[in-house]
């Protein structure tokens, strides 16, 4: 106890010197602490303002380049700008949107729109189903689990441009692996990439995308499975449920959140498939009929025709499509308190 007292004495001494220092030089803080402080002073001191240096630069960057650009794009879509001089912001109409609906044929907006939906739905559903099955397999006390997971996720780390090149070779009708394999069973060779039937082309693209992203669905589902307590598996087993029933009735219903978030992310990746198609078909436009909205937009806006305003309008539709998927998701996340 003696040590405590001597320590205290020393501390008290230092307090006194501290206070002297304060009376000498500490007037500024005194003023700000008094009741005289105005409402504005209070406001400037609030946490929102103090934290502003942290989020404001980002907010301005994102505000300008993301949201500012989106709004600007909508405005351009209402003009008839074709890349010469400046857009005329004098008169606005929905002419571009009307044109979209009127075009027909394999280079048309309608065709690209339908392809986009087909690609998104097929790609997302198959990835999810495939990923779920693999996740269930990996979740069953597998040795080298991390190694398997790392390998399955590997294609996702590659650029679309790289994977497109690889699949170009895989699909090649001139010695590519797929056609060689088909040749063994007496089919082919099939020209997948330049097939006259756009559905074959689309299927080939979807298959390659599934190769690239099903590992992602697997990882998300695996995390979801891990979050389910062992007791649920035990309880189902005690209840005498078969393995299939256990997964169908106990496990899969609990993977709803994982399914929703994986679908949203997969669709977003699906919409980024522009890079893949561009690399697959080189600097040409995608072959007849396989346009999806992302490639269609770039082609009409930045191709030879340079229909910039029309391209903007296509982009608005694409944006609306993406956000009709994302906004409900974000809202449900917000309701869940997950944001």
């Amino acid at each position: 106890m003696d040590s405590v007292r001597s320590w205290l004495r020393r501390r008290i001494d230092s307090i006194q010197t501290d206070q002297q220092v304060r009376t000498d030089g500490g007037t500024a803080s005194e003023v700000s602490q008094g009741e005289r402080r105005s409402g504005l002073g209070r406001y400037l001191d609030s946490d929102a303002v103090e934290s502003a240096p942290f989020w404001l630069p980002s907010f301005l960057l994102v505000g300008l380049f993301v949201y500012g650009a989106i709004v600007w794009n909508v405005i351009i879509s209402l003009t008839d700008y074709e890349g010469l001089g400046d857009p005329q912001y004098a008169s606005f109409d929905l002419e571009n949107y009307r044109q979209m609906l009127q075009e027909t044929g394999s280079y048309s907006f309608t065709n690209a729109f339908v392809n986009t939906i087909v690609l998104l739905v097929a790609f997302t559903l198959i990835c999810l189903a495939f990923g779920l099955v693999v996740a269930i397999l990996v979740d069953r006390d597998i040795r080298f689990e991390n190694t398997f997971r790392t390998i399955y996720l590997l294609p996702m780390s590659l650029s679309f441009v790289v994977t497109a090149k690889m699949w170009l070779w895989m699909y090649s009708s001139n010695g590519g692996f797929v056609n060689r394999a088909l040749g063994v069973v007496g089919i082919g060779p099939v020209n997948f990439i330049r097939n006259p039937d756009p559905n074959v082309q689309l299927a080939a693209v979807v298959f390659a995308l599934i190769w690239q992203f099903s590992g992602y669905a697997m990882v998300v589902y695996l995390a979801g499975l891990r979050a389910i307590p062992d007791e649920h598996f035990e309880a189902a087993r005690v209840d005498g449920a078969s393995i299939v029933k256990m997964y169908w009735r106990v496990v899969i219903p609990q993977l709803r959140t994982a399914t929703v978030s994986a679908s949203v992310v997969l669709m977003v990746f699906g919409l980024k498939a522009f890079d893949f198609l561009r690399a697959l078909y080189g600097n040409d436009t995608p072959a007849v009929g396989t346009d999806i909205l992302p490639t269609y937009m770039v082609r009409v806006a930045f191709g030879d025709a340079s229909r910039i305003a029309y391209g903007s309008a296509v982009a608005v539709v694409l944006f609306a499509l993406a956000f009709s998927i994302v906004l409900p998701y974000l809202y449900s996340e917000y309701r869940r308190g997950a944001l």
Partner: peptide, 22 residues
């Protein structure tokens, strides 16, 4: 949270929607 939602939504913007303005 409102400001944050704007940031998160930004993740999902397809690049095409901003190409012309950019």
């Amino acid at each position: 949270v409102g400001v944050y939602v704007l940031f998160v939504a930004g993740i999902f913007v397809p690049y095409q929607a901003v190409l012309v303005p950019l």
